[in-house]
């Protein structure tokens, strides 16, 4: 049932529908195109003669016999050992999310429950830290890390990503904790809980939605990072994103762009499923900071 104020003329309906359709195409077409093209050979993916070649797979048929080929994936995953990067990403992302959430829930709870002025200032400092371009911080790490032989290892990168994540995690969890009434932990403390027991047994169980949402964003930050992982990891410890960037340097020469295309699609797939399963949480997370002020 549309409310009176939502009633609109036919022309306007056509206009808005057209606009939404245009946006849907702009937003999704590049991904579909690249997904489709990743199963072709380079001559089709980049076809000077006629872009329709990519649809019919003219060169793919000529070179491999079938309309689709997994050559790009085979090259990337097996020949260029992309699976190693996938494994590294899994390790980095998993530990970053777990540690970020552990530190973040504790800190966010404290910030939400403290009425003192310094809590406000800590949040402001966190906001300034959130604005720091990551690469400026990286240029601060490199030299000390080289000196102390910390450079290149996965744990170093995990800790750095956790720290870079903290300002954002604190803000988000703090705003989720504000929504949980103070009475809840106070009544638990009247019943004889310590502050930490109240936090652990009473608050956390009702905080799960907020923790999951924040975890999703920590995941994205760690998964999508390029500046930190590209500069702080050695060749054999590289995660997916820097690995893809290094593909570009090496494979463009050999004419094997399709390796990079296949790797890009492989790195996209988990994100696709992430949105599919957690769309609601992502939307609520994006608006958490905004709508509540």
């Amino acid at each position: 049932m549309a409310a009176a104020s939502q009633r609109r003329s036919r022309g306007l309906i056509a206009l808005t529908t057209g606009f939404v359709m245009l946006w849907v195409v702009i937003a999704s077409f590049p991904f579909l195109w690249t997904l489709w093209g990743s199963f072709k050979v380079q001559g089709d993916f980049f076809s000077k003669a006629d872009w329709m070649n990519a649809l019919w797979g003219t060169f793919t048929r000529a070179e491999t016999g079938g309309a689709f080929t997994g050559a790009g994936y085979e090259g990337a995953w097996i020949e260029q050992e992309f699976w190693r990067a996938v494994l590294n990403t899994a390790i980095v992302v998993f530990f970053t999310v777990v540690i970020s959430l552990t530190l973040g829930t504790l800190g966010g709870f404290a910030l939400a429950r403290s009425g003192y002025r310094y809590a406000f200032w800590l949040l402001m400092i966190a906001l300034v830290f959130r604005a720091m371009p990551h690469i400026t911080l990286v240029s601060g790490y490199l030299l000390p890390f080289f000196e102390w032989n910390l450079w290149g290892h996965l744990p170093t990168t995990i800790i750095v990503l956790v720290a870079i994540n903290q300002p954002f995690t604190l803000w988000m969890l703090h705003s989720f904790f504000l929504n949980i009434p103070k009475d809840l932990d106070e009544s638990a403390m009247v019943d004889g809980c310590t502050r930490f027991q109240a936090f652990w047994h009473v608050i956390i169980p009702v905080m799960w939605p907020g923790v999951i949402t924040t975890g999703l964003f920590s995941f994205l930050l760690a998964y999508n990072d390029f500046a930190v992982t590209a500069m702080l990891l050695s060749q054999e410890n590289q995660t997916m994103v820097p690995k893809i960037a290094s593909f570009l340097g090496t494979t463009q020469v050999e004419g094997n762009v399709m390796f990079a295309v296949a790797a890009v699609v492989s790195a996209m797939v988990p994100l696709f499923f992430l949105i599919m399963f957690f769309q609601r949480q992502i939307v609520s997370g994006l608006t958490a900071g905004a709508v509540k002020g």
Binding site: L103, L106, G107, A110, L122, A163, Q166, L170
Partner: peptide, 9 residues
Amino acid sequence: FIFPSLLAM
């Protein structure tokens, strides 16, 4: 409560 997070930052 805030110490670990603060230390990391």
